[in-house]
Each structure stands twice: as structure tokens, then as C-alpha cells.
Nucleic acid binder design. Structure first.
Length: 726
DNA sequence: ACAGGCGCAGTTTTT
DNA sequence: CTGCGCCTGT
């Protein structure tokens, strides 16, 4: 154990070994936070004799939970399995499954996701006669979510905000929404937290059971907690007061979804005897990168204050590229990456970060054209795909036949000719008789027509199958007997969707293999909470594009951040309040500190947004980085250029090539020699090879070349500097 | 019940 | 410029 502690610096060691009482660890980016947490747990169990089952470690994502559990297990072995290392939500599900009946709910609840939430909100809007334009479902959802984050019930919300006309309406919607969920025995993600808090306050014996169980509590990413989550932790920690929270106020970037930075800022007020430890030594980046980050973030008020340092040395300057427009910007990035790849970097060492996902489009176009390998981390997650969500809705209805929300989703998917009129009839009956939709169908089976009767029979049949078969078999049966499989055949993406459902079945089989004791219910909880399959393929050698939000917690040797323009980053959406601008600045801090060795920041003089081209000023965040840390490459048009070229060209829709052919960043044609299939060529890095194919791409030629030493590569003539071999 | 056309709005996202 | 939601016509 003492050997282990030698691997920590003195602050880290102090954080790992201060076991009793409240502790706040302010862990700067790249300061070895996860290492401290895992060593701390190992130390508690190994040295202090703390029982693993007395430990609760809370994270936000499943990925983080899994990583922490794995690392602790590596340090101390199997016994680690007795700890709870869970996300807020999965811990709450486990608590609620045991005791939610104490507060008048059914233990067999289903968990719905935001897509279902939205359809319930829409139902509510319709029933109350509200206009979707005046009350966009998205904003109603987030209002309800904020209410729950603040632990406000519909009536408390109405009391608090009822003076505001709009909020009064929202309160009505919230109330109806809640009623619908309750009838369907569904909980949304926010309910999981809020109801656990309610359970703890209404049933003190349950609370004291968990207080006694979890004598040692650790919370990661504490700056991301909302009020409800904080309250939950405070209730649990109150008795034994062994609470260690780890976070970085400068990396709080989730206010928009309810994170309350005051939880971390006020921790010392909550616990006046709290010990505070700062981890400021950074093991990730060069000093120049850290100085840039420090200089940006110091413009924020209301922070705890921290200054990252490293013993790695200065490193390279930060390159700032001022592009003419977004195409030029993307070309710069692609070209730079290509030349780095020639100089020994792997593409997977490089990332492009941006403020909003929409930025990926131009990047993709340019990278595609230049044949620079990339992948985009965003897009649809596996469980968000329509076909998967439909299958899950069937499963949820089977698990909990009261689940009206799931029933509505699938009663006419695939089409069974059950439309609005029939559904309204069913809903009216259910309302009258105070039962679920499916029960109402059962009660009136003879009057609702053949297709409804057939649907009812289908569900009954599936309920039997669920009782007698394994989960993969059940999903298979749902897929076939519901007619979904047949229905997919007419879909344009038939094969892909079919494969996805195959993947769902595989996943279920895997889950059951790894969790032999698991029930259908456990599997469904797992589906609801582990909503993204980890398809991050580390092996694939491609540059990765993602938002700065998505990059939190990751690091790359080479980082490009694009869109450093006022209005883009910081986004004009956040220009109304200084609070929001500060959150943007924290996002900038997160982005910069992802880089290990080299950072490129780019802005563009003009860019097209929403179909309109306009001019932009460089981001204030660029100005906040001191001159001596930056190396500026200015490719923005001079005044003369700008007046002569841009307006005319744009207004006449000139082809891109005539506008930008002379852009200095465009690769210079140093070698106009071209080759065709069968020719022997020599490449500076890959050596001798034979051209397999040559296809012109724009004004360039795309070669597929079989090299003697490195195998087949795809290269572009303009970049590859090929010479004739013999 | 569904396809096709129009009009409008437009960050970030885990569970 | 997109994508989504509503409306209309079959």
C-alpha cells in the first residue's frame, strides 16, 4: 500500500489518505483525479479497515463508474465488488426498487427516456389545448426537469412561480404530465432522484438504513450535481459525515441541464470543518497550454481559484490560424493533420473540437475530399434509433402492461390500421374506468374492431413467451410476431435496421452471460440507464471530431479547436448574461486543457451559417490568451481583397474553386507529374509501391497504392509528393 | 392512413 | 441550409 502511495504527489496523497470527515478536492484538469479516487478507496479498505460494503462511490456516467470499479478492483481485487460504484441514477433505481412502495408507487415501475417524455408532454399540450408554438415541447420538458431538479412538486412549483402567467400554465402541464406518468407506472430520469429524496424524507427508517450502510461516500464530478442530487448526498452523509467530493468548478459546463455550481462553491459553508485540497499539478499538458487555459479562465468571477502548472516544460506555442472562411479553416486543419501524419503522428492522436455539432459538416466535406481519415463522435446513439426504441417499447409494455406511453408508441407500429379515432375511444374508456389503456382494450375487446383484438392477442401471447423464455428469445419473438420484421423489409434502411435489432438481441445475450442472476427487470433497468453502447473504437486510426462537451475527460496529443469567433464561441445564444458567458469560458478552458502537446485554434473571417454568409470577429477568448503564448498565421483577407473578392463572388454564386484557388493554405502543386495504374512510384515515407488505381477527384487524383513495406494506402496526388520509381 | 409540400427555427447532453 | 412539424390532398 505504501508503495502505491509513492506514486502520488503530496497533495494527491493527502487527498487519498484524509479519510474521516468532509473533504473537498478541487482537482484541476489532468491532475490525476481518478487516480486519487481509486487510491483513496484502496487505502480506505486496505489500510483503514473500512468494509467495502460501507462505501458508496457516485459518478455521472456509466463509463466513469465502470472505469473506477475496474481500477479499484485492479488494486485490491475481488473484494471491491461489495462496494456500490454507481451513477446517481442507477443507485437510485436500486434504492427505489426495494422501497418505492413506501411512498405509494409500484415497485415494478418502468423508466422512460427523453423521447417518451416528449411524447407525453405533447399529449398534455393537446389535452389542455395549448399551442405547441407557444409552448415548445422541448422547453416545457426542460422546465419540468428544472422543477424536479429543484425538488419542486407541481403544486410547490405553482406556489413558487404561479404569479408568472406562463409558469402557471407550465405548472398545469407539469401536474398533468406527472399524473400520466403515475397512471402508467413510469418514472423519468429526474423522478429517480427526486423520489429517492422523497423516500428518504418520508421513510426515516429507510434513510437510516442507507446512512448506516454508506458510512463513506465519494462523489465524482461534483460541480455537475444539481440541487436534488446534492440533497440526496447530504441526507446520506449527514449521519457519518465521511463525505469526499471531487470536482473542478472551472469545468462546470452543464448548467443548461441543471448543474448547480453553487453546490461545490458552498461546500465549505455546508461543512465548516471541511478540509479543502487543491490538485494543481497537471500531468497532461505543456506549460504553454496550461498558461493559455489559466489566462482565459482567470477572467471569470466567482471561482475557487486555481493555477495549473506542470514540470513538462514550455512546449510549442499555440498556433492561431485566422482563416478566410470555414472551408479554408477546415482545409488548414486537414492539411496540418496530413503533414503531422507524415511526421510520425497517428490520426487517432488528433482531435477537432467545436462548440456545436453543426460544425462537423464542413469539416467532413473537406476531410472527405482530401482523403484524411476521420470519424465523428456524435450522431445517433444506438439506443436512440427508432427500431431499437420500438423494440424496447414492446418489452416495456410486456414488463409493465400499464405502461400507456409504450403502448401508444407501438400500437400502430408496424401499421395495424389503428388510428387516432380508435385510440381516442380507448383513452376515453380508460379514463372513465380509471385503468390503463391495455386494460381498457381488454374490457372492450368486442367493440373495438378486429385489428385491436388482434393486437391484444399479440400482447397476451408475448406475455406468455416472456414467462417461459430467455430474454434474447423474447426479443426475437417480439420482432417476428409483432410483424416488425416484415414491416422493416419495406424500409429503405432495412438491412441496417435489421442488423441493429440483431445487435440488440446479441447485447441481451451478452448481458445475461455476464449477469447470470439477472432478471428481466434488471435487464430493462440496464437498457434504460446504459443508453450508449461503447462503440468508441480505439484501434481505428482516424482523427476524431466532437463537441467540447463530449471531450470532457478525454485528452489528445494534438488538439484543434475551430470556430473561435464571436457569436460562434462564445455562442450568441449565451451573450445575454455574464453567467452564461462565464460558462462558455469554462467550456473554452475544458477545450484547451484537452491538449497534451500542441494546440491549434482557428477562427474565420466569414462563414456561412443557416444559409447566410456573414463576417465574424475573432473570439474574445483568443484575445485573452497572451501574445507571447501564440503564434498567429493570418490568412484572413486584407481590406482590399475583401472588397473586391468576397461580396461579388458570393452574390454571384461563384464556384468555390475560382474564389479560393489562390488561398495560401491550398496545397501547392509542387509536382504536376501524374501516374496511372501499374506505374511504380516512390513515396517519401512509405517507400516504393505500385499504383493499383488512379481516379480524379476534383482537380486532384486519388491513388490506391500497394507499398512494398507498409501495404496498401490511399493517397492524394497533390499531397503525396510521389516520384517515379523504376 | 399516408405522401408530399410549405413554413419556420435553429447550442451544448447524460441518465 | 437543414430538419421537423403541420397541413393538404388522395
Amino acid at each position: 500500500m505504501n508503495e502505491l502511495l509513492k506514486e502520488l504527489n503530496s497533495q494527491q496523497r493527502e487527498a487519498a489518505t484524509s479519510v474521516g470527515g468532509p473533504l473537498l478536492v478541487l482537482a484541476g484538469a489532468g491532475s490525476g483525479k481518478t487516480r486519487v479516487l481509486t487510491y483513496r478507496i484502496a487505502y480506505m479498505i486496505g489500510e483503514k479497515g473500512v468494509a467495502p460494503w460501507n462505501i458508496l462511490a457516485i459518478t455521472f456516467t456509466n463509463k466513469a463508474a465502470k472505469e473506477m470499479a475496474d481500477r479499484v478492483e485492479k488494486l485490491i481485487g475481488e473484494t471491491a465488488k461489495d462496494m456500490w460504484v454507481r451513477t446517481f441514477h442507477s443507485a437510485c433505481v436500486r434504492i427505489l426498487r426495494r422501497d418505492i412502495d413506501r411512498i405509494g408507487y409500484d415497485r415494478n415501475f418502468n423508466i422512460i427516456d427523453s423521447d417518451d417524455q416528449k411524447s407525453v408532454v405533447k399529449e398534455c399540450l393537446k389535452e389542455l389545448g395549448f399551442d405547441e408554438k407557444e409552448f415548445p415541447p422541448r422547453s416545457v420538458m426542460s422546465e419540468i426537469s428544472f422543477a424536479k431538479d429543484k425538488l419542486l412538486t407541481p403544486s410547490q412549483y405553482a406556489l413558487e412561480y404561479g404569479d408568472d402567467y406562463r409558469k402557471k400554465q407550465i405548472a398545469n402541464l407539469y401536474s398533468l404530465y406527472q399524473k400520466k406518468l403515475k397512471v402508467a407506472n413510469d418514472l423519468d430520469f429526474d423522478d429517480l432522484i427526486m423520489l429517492t429524496v422523497k423516500l428518504f424524507s418520508d421513510a426515516p427508517d429507510v434513510l437510516s438504513f442507507y446512512q448506516n450502510k454508506f458510512r463513506y461516500i465519494l462523489v465524482d464530478e461534483y460541480q455537475d450535481t444539481n440541487k436534488a442530487q446534492n440533497e440526496l448526498i447530504m441526507m446520506l452523509a449527514k449521519e457519518h459525515r465521511n463525505l469526499c467530493v471531487v470536482g473542478d468548478d472551472d469545468q462546470s459546463i452543464y448548467k443548461f441541464r441543471g448543474a448547480d455550481i453553487s453546490n461545490i462553491l458552498d461546500f465549505e459553508k455546508e461543512f465548516t470543518d471541511a478540509r479543502v485540497i487543491r490538485l494543481e499539478q497537471n500531468y497532461r499538458s505543456t506549460q504553454n497550454i496550461l498558461d493559455a487555459a489559466n489566462n482565459v479562465i482567470k477572467n471569470n468571477f466567482g471561482r475557487k481559484g486555481k493555477n495549473l502548472w506542470t514540470d513538462k516544460g514550455e512546449g510549442e506555442k499555440i498556433t492561431v490560424y485566422k482563416a478566410q472562411n470555414e472551408h479554408d479553416e477546415a482545409s488548414y486543419i486537414a492539411d496540418k493533420m496530413y503533414s503531422l501524419s507524415i511526421n510520425g503522428y497517428r490520426y487517432s492522436d488528433m482531435a477537432v473540437l467545436y462548440r456545436a455539432n453543426s460544425s462537423s459538416r464542413t469539416l467532413e466535406e473537406v476531410f472527405m475530399r482530401k482523403a484524411v481519415p476521420y470519424r465523428v463522435l456524435a450522431g445517433l446513439r444506438f439506443y436512440d434509433r427508432k427500431e431499437i426504441r420500438d423494440m424496447i417499447a414492446y418489452l416495456r409494455l410486456i414488463k409493465n402492461p400499464d405502461d400507456n406511453i409504450s403502448l401508444r408508441r407501438i400500437i400502430n407500429t408496424p401499421s395495424r390500421k389503428i388510428g387516432k379515432v380508435t385510440l381516442d375511444k380507448i383513452a376515453a374508456a380508460a379514463d372513465r374506468e380509471g385503468c390503463s389503456l391495455l386494460k381498457a382494450i381488454g374490457n372492450h375487446i368486442d367493440t373495438l374492431g378486429a385489428s385491436v383484438a388482434e393486437f391484444y392477442k399479440l400482447i397476451e401471447e408475448l406475455l406468455v413467451i416472456a414467462r417461459e423464455n430467455t430474454i434474447p428469445e423474447l426479443i426475437e419473438a417480439v420482432y417476428e410476431k409483432s410483424g416488425y420484421k416484415e414491416f422493416l423489409k419495406t424500409d429503405e434502411k432495412a438491412q441496417e435496421r435489421d442488423e441493429n435489432i440483431g445487435e440488440l438481441i446479441n447485447g441481451a445475450a451478452n448481458y445475461m452471460e455476464n449477469n447470470e442472476e439477472a432478471t428481466f427487470e434488471d435487464y430493462m433497468d440496464n437498457l434504460a440507464l446504459i443508453s450508449d453502447i461503447d462503440n468508441y473504437d480505439e484501434e481505428l486510426d482516424a482523427a476524431v471530431f466532437m463537441t467540447m462537451h463530449a471531450a470532457k475527460g478525454l485528452e489528445f496529443p494534438i488538439v484543434f479547436i475551430c470556430g473561435f469567433d464571436e457569436g460562434i464561441f462564445p455562442s450568441f445564444m449565451s451573450s445575454y448574461s455574464s453567467e452564461e458567458t462565464e460558462e462558455e469560458r469554462r467550456l473554452c478552458y475544458v477545450g484547451i486543457t484537452r491538449a497534451r502537446e500542441k494546440l491549434h485554434l482557428t477562427c474565420a473571417h466569414s462563414r456561412m451559417l443557416y444559409g447566410k454568409t456573414s463576417n465574424y470577429k475573432p473570439s474574445r477568448f483568443l484575445e485573452e490568451i497572451p501574445e507571447n503564448l501564440k503564434e498567429i498565421i493570418d490568412n484572413s483577407p486584407t481590406i482590399g481583397d475583401y472588397e473586391i473578392k468576397i461580396p461579388k463572388a458570393v452574390s454571384h454564386n461563384a464556384p468555390e474553386s475560382s474564389l479560393f484557388a489562390s488561398a495560401p493554405s491550398a496545397p501547392r502543386r509542387t509536382n504536376t507529374q501524374t501516374f496511372s495504374a501499374g506505374d511504380c512510384v516512390i513515396h517519401k515515407k512509405f517507400g516504393r509501391g505500385i499504383i493499383i488505381s488512379a481516379n480524379s477527384v476534383g482537380n486532384d487524383i486519388h491513388y490506391e497504392i500497394a507499398f512494398e513495406s507498409v501495404g496498401t494506402k490511399n493517397l492524394l496526388g497533390l499531397y503525396a509528393k510521389l516520384e517515379k520509381g523504376d
